[in-house]
Design a protein around this nucleic acid. Structure first.
Lengths: 225, 225
DNA sequence: CGGGACTTACTAACTGGTAAGTAAGTGTGG
DNA sequence: CCACACTTACTTACCAGTTAGTAAGTCCCG
């Protein structure tokens, strides 16, 4: 990387700031294109003309379409994280408040919801390049939510008198999957028919229901099991 | 068409039974292809070679790719309906038992689940030809589930003493959307990572949770609202 | 003057769709 | 029972458009 003769070569602050800017511009365009048309149907030409260059120009920066998708996903992760800058992802009941709040905010950000839903849906096709990313994302989310749930349960047991029973990890995982599932599923319904589904409200209701059922624990009736 | 001299021409029972068979063969192949690769990524050539003909042969039967997709969806509806032949779609609590049972069966029918998930996910892209079908399907399902929920509520009120409160329609719609959402969302997670999610069990849990929350009605706490 | 950011030009593969031709089957009149 | 007319189920061949990717050249900034 660095020139051997110069100990602190000026190239470490590597010249063209334009390059990083350009790349980000392309990433944003690609997010829009893949988000609205999907990865397969969205072409490099579509992306390129949104930033006013040719598709070969895009490939100059990213090498291949697959790599571009990868960087788009990575970029989303980066942006989402720095969005809650410093304040780490909340735990306990706060996590669920955060999820509901996100749903509420998302109801005004159709594009982002669509991008997420499209990519997630497309990822279950055979050999889709986004599948690993989506899978990993689900795994992480499930762990986070299960952990927050555990905290809520412990807290409640410590405070109230209702101790004596333990909630098995399997129940927490189940609840976590259900929370993620209902959020994603509602987004799809909402995208297709915004009049018919109140995204924020329904998400809140469903999460509360799952939360309550989990806290009620093993003694609850299981009429369907 | 018919000869003017013959009042009831025998052509009303029109010859070739082979045609219908061939079409069905193609429809099944198309279901597999669109189900595994999606509508956009799945080509007519893929479909054609699964039945041992050329893509022009497929077009001879269906006219265009869009029409083929339409017939595939229609075909799914037809097959699904005649699957519960006679016994109409159940109401009340039986509907929820039916949904859970379906989830349990689906855990052994990966292909069908994938087809459904792929098409649903892809349908939220701009101008997708399957969007109307998916939207309509959601609308119908929501109505069915809300109706069944109403029956469960009424039944419970009539039997137990806990009368006096009414559950607004909005609450039922919310619950219905949530039920559909969680089923779809769990399918996607399960497809991507079958080890991590127990489809039947988690679906049962989530539906029970939503059911319980709805029945508990307005007096329940809404910690997140 | 060097190198990065492109563009132009191209390729090879593939797309859905069309047109025309062929082989086989069906129905009918004699 | 056969010949003719017609239909169906394709195939082959082709089209125009689009795709991702490559190679080579040009321009401009530092």
């Amino acid at each position: 990387m660095a020139d051997a003769t110069t100990p602190a070569p000026p190239r470490t602050r590597p010249a063209r700031p334009a390059r990083a800017q350009r790349r980000e511009e392309i990433l944003r365009a690609a997010t829009r294109v893949f988000g609205s048309k999907g990865y397969h149907a969205g072409s490099l030409v579509d992306v390129a003309e949104q930033v006013g260059i040719t598709h070969a120009g895009v490939l100059h920066h990213f090498g291949s379409k697959d790599k571009l998708l990868w960087e788009v996903l990575e970029y989303r992760d980066r942006v989402d994280v720095e969005h809650l800058e410093g304040k780490h992802i909340p735990g306990g009941l706060d996590l669920f408040r955060h999820l509901v709040k996100t749903a509420r905010i998302n109801a005004d950000r159709r594009g982002i919801v669509q991008a997420y839903s499209v990519l997630t849906g497309e990822s279950v096709t055979d050999g889709h390049p986004a599948a690993p990313w989506v899978t990993q994302r689900f795994t992480g989310l499930r762990a986070d939510i299960a952990q927050a749930l555990r905290e809520v349960v412990d807290e409640r047991v410590a405070a109230g008198g209702e101790d004596g029973f333990e909630i098995p990890d399997a129940d927490l995982d189940r609840a976590a999957s259900a929370v993620i599932g209902v959020m994603d599923g509602l987004q799809v319904q909402w995208l297709l028919d915004p009049e018919a589904v109140d995204l924020a409200d329904t998400t809140a209701f469903a999460i509360e229901a799952i939360l309550a059922a989990t806290l009620a624990g093993a003694q609850r009736a299981r009429p369907l099991a």
